[in-house]
Amino acid sequence: MQALPSTSANSPHARRPRVWGWVLLAPMIAWLVLFVILPMVILFVYSFCTRDDLGRVVFEFTFDNYRRVGDPIYLTILGRSIAYAALTTVLCIALGYPVAWFIARQREAVRNTLLLLVMIPFWTSFLIRTYAWITILKGEGLLNGLLLAVGFIPEPLTLLYTPFAVIIGLVYAYLPFMILPIYGSAEKLDNALVEAAHDLGAGPVRAFSEVIVPLTWPGIAAGVLLVFVPAIGMFAITDLMGGARVPMIGNIIQNQFSKAFNWPFGAALGVVFTFMFILAYALIQRRGARDPHS
């Protein structure tokens, strides 16, 4: 993880910005201030408020929302969400890395076509895609039908509404977000380099694991970031394919703004969740900066 993209900020060739460096960055800073920091401030203020009976915020200071966040139940739920996200990330790397590498080895026109083909399935609607998966995985579904016909299994398996289905759904949804960044950094690798490694006596597997993979670390790290982080908050897939039997942190937060009519507590959960992420991210960044290997 030492190669998180952040380290580019510490690139040895980076200079101190002069006027233009700041002027050009200004639009992005403005964007961040307006649409990220300000909403976060609103959220932060809300999290210390009480509510009226419509769930609306009443500006009256309280610390109760944070006291409730400390309940161990929310920690277990967060732990579960993180575990699912981590498993998804690992599987996405395993499935996606060879694909990214293979696409990167093609001619440019073919490369772009293949990249588009990776993404196009996701231009349909999420619900319709998920219902297609339900059609495949259900008790009398296509997969069971196929396995029964081949004689692989004596009776239909229970696939749908299990953790297995959830993982399939999550991997399916996030796989492209692993393939694309890895492709971005694998594309520039020179074949000559790979061959050189091979010429020096490394077998294909060693050449791959000791030369190629380290060179694409930035891509893998970016992919991990783009898959792992959003997957923690995901709950639509766990609801639809897992039967909503176990709550995820995303459900909990969503509920506070809807059924539970408790915006301030939802805000407090959101604040804690976001700050935990910021803290973890900052720690990893710091370690990455200290580690000269990256």
Binding site: L32, F35, V36, M40, L43, L225, L226, V229, P230, I232, G233, I249, G250, I253, Q254, F257, S258, G266, A267, G270, F273, T274, F277, I278, Y281
Partner: peptide
């Protein structure tokens, strides 16, 4: 920059 990725959608 990475905060919008982690922020729950409803929030």
């Amino acid at each position: 920059i990475c905060v919008p990725m982690i922020m729950p959608e409803i929030v």
